[in-house]
Amino acid sequence: MNAFFTALAFLTRIPVPVRMDPRDWPKSTVYYPLVGLVIGVLLVLMNEALSLLFPPLVRSVLVTAGWVFLTGGLHLDGLMDTADGLGANKDREQTLAIMKDSRVGAMGVLAAILLLGVKVSALTYLEPAIIPLLAAPVAARTGMTAAIAFFPYLREQGMGLNLREGLSPLRLGVALTSGTAIIAVVAGWWTFLILGGTALVIGLIARVVLRRLGGLTGDVYGCMAEAVEAAILLLWLAAGDPV
C-alpha cells in the first residue's frame, strides 16, 4: 500500500499514514486512476452536501474551490506554467526557462481563469453531477499515466523521468485497465465518449508541446490533467447529461 499512499500524497493534500519512500515513487503511477476515484468520491460528497444549502452557482464555485484544494493546485500550477511558456512564443530554451520560473505571467493567469470558469459554469448546469464528477478525475489521471508512458520526457533528470522509468508494461497495463474499468462502472456505455475525449485532449496537447519542445515535462502532465477534467464536464453537458 505504500506506493498507493505515495501517489495519494503527491496528487492530493489528503494526509497519509506513512512517509513517502523514494523506492515507492516509481511504482506509484499504477495507482493514479485509483487516486482519481478518491478525488471523485470526495467531490461528489461535497457537491451533494452543498446542493442542500446553496443555489447551483454558489455550489459550483465552492465545489471547484474544493477541487483545487484537494489537489493542492498541483495540476493548475502546471497548466499556468505551460500556458506561460507556450504563450510567450519564444525559442525552446527560453520557453523552458519561462516554464521553470516560479512567477506566473499573464498567459498563465488567463489560462487558470478560463479553465476554472469552464468548470464552474459546467457544474452549475450539471445536476445531478455524480457521474462526471466521478469520471473526470479518473480519466484525467489515467490519461496522464498514458502520457507519461507513451510520450518522451524532456529533461534528463526530474520526477517525471523516474515515473516513466518505473512504469513497466505490466504497471501501465494495470493502470489503464483499472482506470477504464472504474469509468465503465461509473458511466456505462458512455465510457467510449469519456475515453475518446481524454485521448483527444491528451493527443492535441502532446502534439503542440512536442512540436515546440520535443518532449513533455511535469508541468505539461498537470496541464493535461486539468484540460481533461474540464473537457469531460463539457462533453457530459453537451451530451445532455445522458444517463
Rank of each mutant, 00 (worst) to 15 (best):
M1H: 07
F5T: 11
T6G: 03
F10L: 13
L11I: 00
V18S: 07
M20N: 08
R23M: 03
D24G: 00
W25K: 00
V35W: 11
I39K: 05
L43R: 10
V61N: 06
A65R: 03
G66F: 00
G66H: 01
G72V: 04
G73W: 04
H75P: 03
D77W: 06
G87V: 13
G87C: 04
G87F: 04
N89C: 11
M99G: 11
R103K: 15
V104G: 14
M107R: 10
G108N: 14
V109Y: 13
V109R: 04
V118L: 06
V120A: 01
S121D: 06
A122C: 15
L123V: 11
L126Y: 12
P128D: 05
A129P: 08
P137I: 01
A139V: 03
M144A: 15
F150T: 04
L154N: 02
Q157W: 09
G158D: 05
M159N: 02
G166N: 05
R171M: 02
R171I: 13
V174L: 09
L176N: 01
S178W: 11
A181N: 06
V186M: 10
W190L: 03
G197Q: 09
L200N: 03
R207K: 13
V209M: 02
L213C: 03
G218R: 00
Y221G: 10
C223K: 00
E226A: 02
E226V: 03
V228N: 11
L237C: 12
A239S: 15
G240M: 08
P242K: 06
V243M: 05
